[in-house]
């Protein structure tokens, strides 16, 4: 689901739609729409399974933020490495990890991507270059520059895409990482997913910095604020940032302005924001509706949307069935994989 079809024809309006970034072709937009829809429907289903007691513990949904990961993924190439926090289902699906394996990990089954030992917050894929899935806020940032360090050490032109929340951006190790990445010119795209809240604390109440995209300035890290609800804007910024890293110019910082529709995890008192705020964004700035409107204007038919919707539904239903019927891990798995080779 990560391939893009560059042969697709450009929408007639893509250069002249008044937006100050190059647009995607209609085929690319369709791909983006499909990828975002898969994440949305997958997450809605995960929320439902949680409500039924099939998923336990923490479960952080990505609903509302889909354009960020999809726009970035479309700018990446094979071999680029991705790392993120516990809010990781979107990243995994965008990376092309098997929805069955992801859902089965959410339900803690043997067929899950971590064989039921990681859970919602901890999944990895060496094959898809996805390095987790980390539950300690900010830890993935230092780990992420390590992925970039490895790329540089091996002399490849691959980059590390390191995602973290605006809440995480207050952690000390983020600034240690900015310094190290700039000092060693590490090919790392730092992506702050500013969804305005870290649990119940708004960014205004947590960060004295009012422009997170400038937070790398003391280290000379170029930054950009991006409309994270607009997949084309995300994609354009990602291309620029990734090119900068690939050329060996060091790290780049993107602040994605986005929004989380759901609670932080599943149980969330939701007393820290007004319902009207959520509704307003859902109705006026939904990243999926936005692409749908662009596609409609470009002449994409209702039947095409229906087809994509049906396909996504089937994938999610299939993943759900798989996640519900797979066996729990065997007790003998309790002691495996603690150490390599033992």
């Amino acid at each position: 689901m990560t391939e893009q079809n560059n042969a697709g024809q450009s929408r007639p309006d893509s250069a002249t739609d008044g937006r100050n970034h190059p647009g995607l072709t209609t085929d690319q937009l369709k791909q983006a729409y499909y990828d975002m829809l898969l994440i949305r429907r997958f997450e809605e289903k995960a929320g439902q399974l949680y409500g039924m007691g099939l998923i336990g513990g923490f479960c952080h949904l990505y609903i509302g933020q889909e354009a960020v990961v999809v726009g970035l993924q479309m700018a990446q190439k094979d071999g680029d490495k991705v790392i993120t926090s516990y809010r990781d289902h979107g990243q995994m699906l965008a990376a092309g990890m098997d929805p069955r394996g992801v859902m089965a990990e959410l339900t803690g089954r043997a067929t899950g991507l971590s064989h039921g030992k990681g859970g919602s917050m901890h999944m990895f894929s060496r094959e898809k270059n996805f390095y987790g899935g980390h539950g300690i806020v900010g830890a993935q940032v230092a780990l992420g520059i390590g992925l970039a360090f490895a790329n540089k050490y091996r002399g490849t032109d691959e980059v590390s895409i390191t995602y973290f929340g605006e809440g995480a951006s207050n952690q000390g190790q983020v600034y240690e990482s900015f310094n190290l990445a700039a000092l060693h010119k590490l090919p790392c795209v730092f992506v702050i997913e500013n969804n305005r809240y870290g649990m119940g604390t708004s960014v205004e109440r947590a960060s004295a910095s009012k422009a997170l995209w400038k937070n790398g300035e003391p280290w000379g890290i170029p930054g950009k604020q991006v409309d994270g609800m607009d997949v084309e804007a995300v994609n354009a910024a990602a291309k620029e940032a990734i090119a900068h890293c690939r050329e060996g110019k060091g790290p780049y910082l993107l602040e994605m302005s986005t929004y989380r529709y759901r609670g932080h995890s599943m149980s969330d008192p939701a007393k820290y924001r007004q319902r009207s705020e959520v509704d307003e964004i859902r109705q006026k700035h939904d990243p999926i509706d936005h692409v749908r409107n662009l596609l409609k204007a470009a002449g994409v038919e209702d039947t095409d949307f229906k087809e994509m919707e049906t396909k996504v539904k089937e994938i999610v239903a299939d993943a759900t069935e798989f996640a519900k019927t797979s066996p729990e891990p065997d007790p003998s798995e309790l002691f495996t994989d603690v150490l390599v080779g033992e």
């Binding site: 390095y131 830890a139 992925l147 190790q173 990482s177 190290l180």
Partner: peptide
């Protein structure tokens, strides 16, 4: 904190 995380990522 930073360089240990970096080394671990590598």
């Amino acid at each position: 904190h930073g360089f240990t995380g970096m080394a671990t990522g590598a």
